[in-house]
């Protein structure tokens, strides 16, 4: 199981990580708004994450830390 840490307040809600995830585990949190006034990215099912770090590679703002 992998652990993802998001620097939520740095997220600009571009959604590139959502598309990059091969298992489609990420989404933009529609019910949350961060300091930058965006819907931040979040993981829906951390237990299913394999920690491939595709989302972190794709994130233009470098907000995702991946641990395995």
């Amino acid at each position: 199981m992998a652990k993802l840490t998001f620097k939520t307040d740095y997220c600009k809600g571009c959604g590139l990580c959502v598309d990059a995830c091969p298992k489609k585990l990420l989404q933009l949190a529609k019910d949350k708004i961060n300091k930058k006034r965006h819907h931040p990215a979040e993981i829906t099912d951390e237990a299913a994450c394999v920690g491939c770090a595709s989302c972190a590679m794709m994130c233009p703002d470098c907000i995702i830390k991946v641990e395995r």
Binding site: L16, M57, V66
Partner: peptide, 20 residues
């Protein structure tokens, strides 16, 4: 084990670039 993290040569300043 950390698989991916922000590199040391980048500091903590948030990028001013547009989303995406």
């Amino acid at each position: 084990m950390v698989v991916f993290d922000k590199p040391h040569a980048l500091n903590d300043m948030p990028f001013h670039y547009c989303p995406g």
